[in-house]
Design a protein around this nucleic acid. Sequence first.
RNA 1: GGGCCUCUAGCUCAAUGGUAGAGCAGUUGACUCUUAAUCAAUUGGUUCAGGGUUCGAAUCCCUGGGGGCCCA
Length: 489
Amino acid sequence: MELNELQQQRLAKLERLRAAGIDPYPPRAERTHTIAELHARFDELTAAGARVTTAGRIMGARRVMGKLAFAHIADESGQIQLWLSRGDLGDEWFERFRDDLDTFDIVQASGTLRRTKTGEASLFVEQLVLLAKALNPPPEKYHGLTDTEVRLRERYLDLIVNEATRHVFRTRSRVISITRRVLEERGFMEVETPVLQPIYGGASARPFITHHNQLDQDLYLRIAVELYLKRLIAGGFERVYEIGKNFRNEGVDRTHNPEFTMMECYQAYADYNDIMELVETLFRTLAHELTGSTTITFQGQAIDFGPTWARVSIPEAIAERTGIDILDVTELAPLQAAIRRENLKVDPQPSWGKQVDELFSVYVQPLLIQPTFVIDHPVALSPLAKKRPDRSLLVERFEPVIAGLEVGNAFTELNDPLDQEQRFLEQGRAYAAGDDEAQQMDTDYINALMYGMPPTGGLGIGMDRVAMLFSDQPTIREVILFPHLRQRE
RNA sequence: GGGCCUCUAGCUCAAUGGUAGAGCAGUUGACUCUUAAUCAAUUGGUUCAGGGUUCGAAUCCCUGGGGGCCCA
């Protein structure tokens, strides 16, 4: 390992400490109070003259005068100022603090609490213990660390110096735990299903492929958990959910990371209308618990989860915005002709369904700022959803859209094994025609349906995107602790 | 995958084709109420990598790499 000048200086200090018989990485720490507890009970502890011991990382610059020094230390709960005097600490440790300790070192400090002349609650230190020597220097103290690349590659440093980053990940954690609680309160049971799957299914996406050596078998990292959870519904569990990582072999952008966290849940004897109610309740609860109100601010836009959500029908909205009635133009070539006639700026797609999706994505979805259920998807794009009884071209499906962002996908599940088989065959033809996101035939899943699966409503929610909304972050990588980046060199 | 922008000291940033600099941090010294401490002095560079143009390249050109923004 090659050390730069600043690292070498810190290493020299570490060696000096070792030479003086001090372990720079002792195995144990002592703490009578966290820093937040010191502040919360400051008056009481000060009046009692209590001797307290706390610990934390030296933050900001040390301010060392001839016989007096100041520094702030931080633990997860907060910051407190240390007041260090040659008189209280003794020459040896005062000089050690001055000469051999640095910003970012982690220390344990014992003493009494008092306010300084300027009124700042401080720990007047009588005894100092080094808990961990930092060999890396801090970033610039005023501008801090701003370089996005370094913030993501060295997320630990980002967390040390940026309270805003810590806040984002605390919020993300609460989003997940509140979601879990809402589901548990409704009687959903958390389950775990395979990450390594012999057949990938449940979504339209390209998989990562891996290999089991002993079985000499290719396996796929799951792109969804849908088909396994519905096997459980067929098995008789009536409410199940799973929160976990999915993997899709796709590009990285503002709203996509190759591995991401999905919540999926399935409820027997329910349909997509019941699931809409669940989604409304979930988001209303998240907003209320995280902000105290039903309204959040995302990228400058107020978003209200109080009311029931608007419903936007894909064919109706496309007709309104483009003048094309997709239910009248149900083949690819005539649809593309109509697009040219109307002079619409969308890219040509290889199938009617995808062309419809493209029209909607360009001309309707960006306008959907308030929480909206997008409904009436083409059956060709929804091989696992039940058809509308009144319109066989469309399915009982909805996507929750917030601030123009798709945050999930839900439908009345297709439980007819014969129809399901036909849908898989259709997907197989699409794959053969070059659609590398088409879904695979899963005969074991059809076998499960052949035992009978009750009418069921199902839902998938992209938890990273929900975390973006509730932490007001513009990109998914800001809500993923260690997002994917290219290797250096 | 395409277009545009960007990469200089540990960090935040300058430097119009002509001696690579500042602030902070660090180091040395002074200082017993500081908090972006102050005062004085001072160290620190493969300018992302490789090639080219030029008397001379951080700067212009080419190739490659990392990152950002927009588009697909």
